[in-house]
Each structure stands twice: as C-alpha cells, then as structure tokens.
C-alpha cells in the first residue's frame, strides 16, 4: 500500500486529539445495514454521514453500523446517541436527509422530531 507516510501523520494527529479531549466520543451515530437497510440505500446514507462529519471536522463523533432491527419499512434507519443521553432512531434517512440530520442534531444540537421513529428500542 502507498501513502503509509500520510497514515503515520494521521496517527500522530489522532493521538494529539485524544490527549486534548480524552478518549470519550461526544456522540455515536449508528446506521442499520442489514439486507433491508442496504437495499433501501443505507450505504449511500453512510457515505453522506461520513462525508458530512469529515467536511465539518466532527472528529469526536464515532460512526458505526448494526444489522436489521426489525423495522425494515423505515429503512434506512440511523441511531444517534449524544453523550450519555438515550439514543434516538430516525427513519427513512436517505443521503440528503442524512446530511441534514448530522447538521441539525450534532452541529446545531437541535432535536429532529419529524424523522424520529418512536417505536424502536
């Protein structure tokens, strides 16, 4: 693989950040990517979320994924947990909504009740 020198610099920056802010992430974003999620476009949702986080330099936000949660009709589904708060699921989050969701919830810090899915655990 090329660019391993660049990767070493990224490692140094990540370690510096960690010393400044501690290891705890400020927020956690989870995209449901079971067969149903992928078919509904969860991959594009994931791409949009990663792009938005990178563009806005939200380096304390951790992104992960999970499988089918049994709410296939609301896919693509995204869960956001800020700090120790109760996590919230958001439904039908396509790429365009994903970018808006990140900005509203994690940059502006506002709730986004219009896309919330109440029945999810």
């Amino acid at each position: 693989m090329k660019n391993l020198a660049e990767l070493r610099k990224i490692k140094e920056r990540a370690l510096q950040r960690r010393q400044l802010s501690g290891t705890e992430a400020r927020a956690r974003v989870t995209v449901a990517m079971g067969t149903c999620g992928i078919a509904a476009g969860a991959r594009e949702t994931m791409k949009a979320i990663l792009a938005e986080i990178e563009q806005r330099q939200l380096k304390d936000v951790v992104v992960t994924q999970t499988g089918c949660i049994g709410l296939c009709e609301y896919e693509p589904l995204v869960k956001i947990q800020v700090g120790a708060e109760e996590p919230t699921w958001y439904g039908k989050i396509d790429a365009a909504r994903a970018a808006t969701l990140i900005v509203k919830r994690l940059v502006a810090g506002e709730p986004v009740p219009e896309w919330e899915v109440k029945t999810a655990k």
Binding site: M1, N3, L7, I10, K11, L15, L50, I53, V61
Partner: peptide, 27 residues
C-alpha cells in the same frame, strides 16, 4: 489490507477514527 493499516496505527488509534476512515476512503 487493513492489517497493514493497523500495523501503522498500532493499538492506540482504531480504524474507526474519522480521519483514518477519510484516508481509507480516499485510498
């Protein structure tokens, strides 16, 4: 090969670090 990437990052920095993910996507 993520094993190569991990060898550089060591145990302290995970693959899920946002900047590492950006690097992987660009690569």
């Amino acid at each position: 090969d993520t094993r190569e990437v991990r060898a550089v990052l060591g145990n302290e920095v995970p693959l899920s670090d946002p900047e590492v993910l950006g690097f992987l996507r660009n690569t």
